[in-house]
Amino acid sequence: MKTQDILKNIREKNNLTQEQFAERINVTRQAVSRWETGETQPNTEMLKVLSKEFNVSINTLLGAPRQLFCQCCGMPLGDDAMISREIDGTFNEDYCKWCYTDGKFVYTTKDSLLDFLISHMPNPENTPDAERRKMFDSHLSQLKHWK
């Protein structure tokens, strides 16, 4: 989906006219109209405003051009409900809400996350814990948070 369609859908989902939408984010109705026709796109700062005001990640506003993965545990962030937030409520698209909550990391060490994974991840093949730990560690070591 294109940004122009996403913005129009957000506006309509909130039962707002272009003028009401514009007032809510302090732009002109004409700016909203140009966004919805694809003539222009919101700039970076406006994307942040839209994200916060309408509870939608910037990645979603841009039509999800990239697949997001938690940079702590590696989980795919398939929808905005899984994405972490900063204390001010803005999205932090680098982490899932289970690894990063209220502006803080839940797992302060890689070992604490590895302990959690070993105890909670299914092990249908009964792979020894030491082998599983090594496999998880190898994967986690490639993520931004643990580099």
Rank of each mutant, 00 (worst) to 15 (best):
W98N: 12
F69L: 14
H139V: 15
N123M: 09
C72T: 09
L140Y: 13
A31S: 09
V106N: 04
F69H: 13
E131N: 09
P42T: 05
C70F: 03
T37K: 11
K147P: 08
P128E: 14
W146D: 04
E36Q: 05
L143E: 11
S84P: 08
V56M: 12
G74C: 05
W98A: 04
V49T: 15
Y100W: 01
V27E: 00
D88W: 12
E53D: 05
V106M: 02
H139S: 15
F116K: 07
K97P: 11
E36A: 02
S138L: 12
N92Q: 05
F21Y: 00
L140H: 14
V27I: 00
P76H: 09
Q30F: 00
E125S: 14
E86P: 07
T101C: 08
F116M: 05
L140I: 13
E39I: 10
L143G: 12
V106P: 01
F116V: 02
F69P: 06
R11V: 06
D79L: 03
E93A: 10
I58G: 01
R24I: 03
L113N: 08
S57C: 07
L16A: 06
I10C: 05
L114V: 13
S51W: 03
S112R: 04
N55E: 14
A64P: 00
Q18I: 00
E39P: 02
L140D: 15
D115M: 01
S119P: 02
Y95D: 01
N15I: 08
G78W: 09
D111P: 08
R11E: 08
S119E: 13
R132L: 15
Q20V: 07
V27G: 00
A130P: 06
L113P: 11
Q18D: 00
Q20M: 10
L117N: 08
